[in-house]
Amino acid sequence: MYEVIAFYVFAISTTILFLITAFSKNVLYAMTALASGMVMISGFFFLLGADFLGVVQLIVYVGAVMALYAFGMMFFDATKDIKEKHQNPTLVFILGGLMALVFVIMFSAPIIGENVQAIHPVIEGVGNAQAVGMVLFTKYLVAFEVAAVMLLVAMIAGIILAGKKMDYSLTTNDDTYDHEDEILKGAGK
């Protein structure tokens, strides 16, 4: 009973928040709704007993949306509405709507067509994190390692792209540079 009520509360608030994200012209509303929608989604994981995944959802998306805020802060005035330029609104509407429809059919068809069975049922008496670990390091080990290598490559590329002038400090190479900074920073080279 409580779970049903909680599910509908989370479902309705998630939908409304993501609708705000899509329709709001104010960048602050859009991003805040996105962040709170992500928090609401973690509620579903908690309802299903997947505490670990819920918490991961919370931590990962809180951080990710925070990075989005940093970009929003750089490019937009958060207190004003944004005037969007639409070249062809009808086409965008139809394409977007069709894509949403395709996704809904893709994910709901297997559920309607046949009862979905868990390939790896939850092992009784094992904690949440352990259960995730068991599946991750047995059945999905290759995918997991490939993802790890991909992330490593992306990280190295990011460091190389961003780190060209990493040791050149704009603050300390200013005209009014004084040598106390050097002492404060110690051997920070």
Binding site: D51, F52, V55, V56, L58, G127, N128, A129
Partner: peptide, 8 residues
Amino acid sequence: DINVGILF
């Protein structure tokens, strides 16, 4: 006492 307390 959720079993992922510290992460939560």
